[in-house]
Structure formats: C-alpha cells, structure tokens
Simulated scan of single mutants.
Amino acid sequence: MKFLIIIPAHNEENNLPFTLDSLQRQNFKDFKIVVVNDGSTDRTSEVIKRYTENDGRFETINLQKSAHQPGSKVVAAFKKGLSTQNLDEFDVICKFDSDIILEENYLQTVANAFIENPDYGLVGGLLYVEKNEEWVYEGNSNKHHVRGPMKAYKKECFLQIGGLRETLGWDNIDAILLQNSGWKEVVLPELHVKLIKVKGADYTIKPADYYGRYFYFLGLNRFLTYVAAVKEAMKVKSPSFLFQIISSYEKCKSQNLELKITKDEKKVINQQRWNQFKKKWFKT
C-alpha cells in the first residue's frame, strides 16, 4: 500500500515540526507528503523547506492568504494539494492536521487494517490532549468517529463519496456518505494521536453561531436541528444558547446559503440522523 498524505498548514511553525518528525519516524515508509502552506505569515515555509530539501517523499505548494473559517478553508487547502497528485499511484488518501503527533506504528497499523478488512473505508485513532502534563483522551466525540485531524481513506471509498466538501461539517458528512455506500468507518483505539493545539482556537465564530451554521451546512431539517440544539443547550445548561443556535440556523436558511451536498445526499444525512434519534429515544 502507498499513502498520499495531505497536510494543510497555516502559521504552524511551532507545531508542524512535531507532525513531520513523527511521520519521518514511521516504521511504514511507503508514503508521500504534500504540505500545503496556506497563506502563512510566520516561518512555516522555512520549516517545510527543511523537509523537502532532505527527504524526497516531502513536497509543498504555497497558497495565498484566505479567510480563516471552520471547515471550508482547510478542505480547500487539502483539495489544492490533492489536485497536484496522480491518485492512480496511491491506495490510501490521508488528510492530516499540522499539529498532531503520530505513534511510530500509526501508518503500518492503518495499512494492516485496510488490507485485512476490504470493507474499511475510513480509519483513524483516538485524539489525546495534554492536561496537567499528561496526555488524556480528548472526549469531544464518540469513540467510533474518526476525527478531522487524522482521516485516512481507502482511495476507492474516497472517490466513491466524491471526496471532501468545502463546508462546515465536512468531517461528519464524509462518514455518513461512506457508510451509506457500504463502507465502514473504524476507530482503532490502540492508536493514540496527540493533538498539540486545541481545535477551534483560531476561529472567531461564537459557539452558538457555530452550531447553527454547522447544522445548516450539514443539511439537517428543522426538526433534527432543533433536537440537536436542545442537546447542546442542555450540555451548557443555557436556554439562551438554544435560541442562539436556532437563530443562527434560521438566518442561514433565510439567506438560502449554498450547500455543498446534493439533494440525495441531504436525504441520506437526514435519514441517518433520524434513525439515530429513533434508536435513542424509541429503542427501535
């Protein structure tokens, strides 16, 4: 198996060396890395140069500065890197973040999982963050969902779902679509991925506005959005948080903002969420 690893990077001079070093230390060697320097204004380009000059498996492309928005920016950068490569040469396509540290056996373990399980379409480990000088499970998502910082797709699966979408919620849209196409999303809990930077730290969008926009661009209908909004509001014990989420969602809907999914894909996503709702509340 050969891996194509695309790493979008924006002002990551302090974090990127840890990511690239951990990839160089992999006991699995058959990979190619494209670091997409996404309008960095720090020394990210100098960091990348140290690797591209000394390791033929590393390449880079440079993009102009763009607005830093959740979802769309990082996927746009990923797709720019992807477009420079001949996908016929690869078996696995990875979207990795520029602030993670992988165990030395990470790629080999993922490769073995794909080889031994032909129906695996998306594989990854679990995210860990540093707290009180210890690495602990991040816990922001269920342990059966491969998080955005370390996505590894079997190429056939990646192509079948139409790649990644430049939108908020892309890292849930992919999972829903691939499962609907008969592929499996699998988390390997023995693989610990260290996340250096807390996600969302660079975003200026407010949490309630984020959730409202996320539910809209995910394609959820009103009922499912309101149910999800109640769930998020209950977590923070704030009725106002609920109404702020709904307001954000309705604002997007009134503006008829463009979705990056088709009508059929929207139906699939809503059906999947509805099935989850029924399973939880009606035990069906």
Rank of each mutant, 00 (worst) to 15 (best):
K80C: 11
Q244L: 11
D174Y: 08
T225E: 12
L4C: 03
Q69C: 05
K29Q: 15
Y226I: 03
F158D: 02
G182Y: 07
F277K: 09
S72V: 02
Y128E: 14
D171Q: 06
V47I: 15
V198C: 07
K29Y: 05
F215D: 00
N54C: 06
E103W: 01
T204E: 11
P8V: 01
Y203S: 03
S254A: 12
F241D: 05
L195H: 14
A77V: 00
V129P: 00
E133Q: 08
T84W: 02
Q272H: 13
D38A: 13
F78Y: 15
N112G: 08
Y211I: 03
P149C: 04
K79M: 06
K231N: 12
I7V: 15
E59M: 11
N86S: 12
V74C: 09
D264N: 14
G162A: 08
L178K: 00
N54D: 10
N11P: 05
N275S: 13
G219L: 02
K206N: 05
E190V: 07
R222D: 15
Y203A: 06
T225I: 01
E103V: 10
S22G: 11
V193C: 09
L242Y: 14
I205H: 04
G124Q: 07
A67T: 13
W170L: 00
F28T: 07
D119K: 12
L177S: 02
F243M: 08
E134N: 14
V236S: 09
W183D: 02
L168M: 15
E190S: 13
A208W: 02
K280E: 11
D97R: 05
P189Y: 06
E104M: 10
Y137A: 07
Q69M: 09
N27L: 06
F58A: 02
I48P: 00
N142C: 12
K199C: 03
S72T: 08
L220W: 13
L188M: 13
S72A: 12
K80H: 11
W170M: 00
F28D: 03
V47H: 07
E59G: 04
Q272E: 14
K131N: 10
V227D: 08
N105T: 12
H144M: 09
N15Y: 13
I176T: 08
W274Q: 05
E12D: 11
I196E: 01
T44Y: 09
K197E: 15
A111P: 06
Y203E: 08
N132D: 14
Q255N: 14
Q276F: 14
V123Y: 09
P118H: 12
E250W: 00
L164M: 09
Q160W: 00
F28C: 09
K29D: 09
T60H: 11
L82H: 03
V186L: 10
N11G: 05
Y128A: 04
S181M: 11
G139C: 12
D38M: 04
N37S: 05
A77L: 12
R147S: 04
V268K: 07
L220D: 10
A76K: 14
A113H: 13
I173W: 03
R57P: 13
W170P: 00
N54V: 04
L178W: 02
F114M: 07
E104D: 14
E53P: 07
K154C: 01
D30L: 06
W183F: 15
P118A: 05
N172Q: 15
L188Y: 04
I176V: 15
T262E: 06
D171A: 05
V198S: 12
K253R: 13
R165Q: 06
K206H: 06
S248N: 06
T19Y: 10
V47A: 04
T204S: 13
L107E: 04
